[in-house]
Design a protein around this nucleic acid. Sequence first.
DNA 1: CGCAAAACATTGCGGCAGCATTACGGGAAT
DNA 2: ATTCCCGTAATGCTGCCGCAATGTTTTGCG
Lengths: 223, 223
Amino acid sequence: MRLLLIEDERELATALSVALSKLGIVTDHTMHLADAFELTRQNAYDAILLDRRLPDGEGLTFIPTLRRAGNDTPIIVLTARNEPLERVEGLDIGADDYLGKPFLVEELMARVRAVLRRPSNLTEQRIVAGRMVIDPLHLNVAIDAAPLDLPRRELLVLVALAKRKGKTVLRSTLETAVYNYEDEIQSNALDAHISRLRKRLLDAAAGVAIHNIRGVGYLLKEE
Amino acid sequence: MRLLLIEDERELATALSVALSKLGIVTDHTMHLADAFELTRQNAYDAILLDRRLPDGEGLTFIPTLRRAGNDTPIIVLTARNEPLERVEGLDIGADDYLGKPFLVEELMARVRAVLRRPSNLTEQRIVAGRMVIDPLHLNVAIDAAPLDLPRRELLVLVALAKRKGKTVLRSTLETAVYNYEDEIQSNALDAHISRLRKRLLDAAAGVAIHNIRGVGYLLKEE
DNA sequence: CGCAAAACATTGCGGCAGCATTACGGGAAT
DNA sequence: ATTCCCGTAATGCTGCCGCAATGTTTTGCG
């Protein structure tokens, strides 16, 4: 899962990024609305976390901009302004949820999941692949009801492949599923993850195999 | 917009077709599941309206058949059986929406629009060519849900041809689709790709043929 | 109708880009 | 203090793909 965080308080932003990354969530962060729009054009985010007070304007103005561009990504507004009337204002303008500061990361994640669970989002809640059952929202993998413990990056690779099981996933897609902009990647780290993940899936008899499509990407296939 | 209507009550079917045509929607109609599958292979429908009681069986059985063939077209089930449990049954098996008879055409259209508005349906554009289903965004080619593993350059040629299937594609267009400016090309490399691609399509019984238009370019034709 | 040239088709070959695997070490987490 | 993740890089290997040689079809022209 990949989120865009639009927030000018640097401390909150980094704290949030760290907390989310531990949950396996990749977060891109920007402080400016102008950058934000460009980022949404280059990445398919699962959701956007939007602050209201920003150096270059009221955050809410970003919502119509995005919607007019045909982008339906769910938006959760994060703000200290938490009066009922302001909530209405935010929701009416097209936000999907509204969360007052301060908040618990757990609550934020629950709301993100809730927003992604809505019928207008076709995010599958349960993917069956081979003997595995994968919950892409909670990021857990189970084999015969027994949870399978995977390192974070390998888990992200697996989920990204499982979301399109049986179909090729571009190498670039995998990269954006696992890394954010800050992490530069300058080696075969992704290949290494794939290799280690393969070994783990084999050991666990997961009933799937990861195939390579040379020059294009990878593909998860059931056996 | 083009819909497939699978419905055995002839009066309802014609009434619906007329009503939909006034909204600018083209409707193909069949009464039999057997025909329906063939139709979905020859046309890229925006959505499918499916009755449950049909002369040759329970309509819901069509859904797994279609999904297994790699077809993600949204399906709206139309039926007199409108008990809550039956709705769950329909949705769990992979239907996108469920509408009890009788219904207003307005409501049906609203639901069609809602289903089409879902993100995965907006981004997931597919090209049907012969027995192949091609997703040009993800560079994905499948025959009966089985992914077809093609080398990168041949894949690019196929996608470029499929995007304009039935129409000639200039040789220069193909070249720019496969090569970037850095790669200078000074041989018949493109011809070689075409040749090898032909062989692969033949082996896979893809149901298409690549024709040459002498001095102009190539053309992908369904058989 | 006949011949030649041009355009296209096919196929073997070799270089090398891309992938798989694994060991190593720094660093974060418990 | 120990464990394990994860980025890096070295190594070996597979098979793609550019090239060129050869065969086939089509077009142009007298």
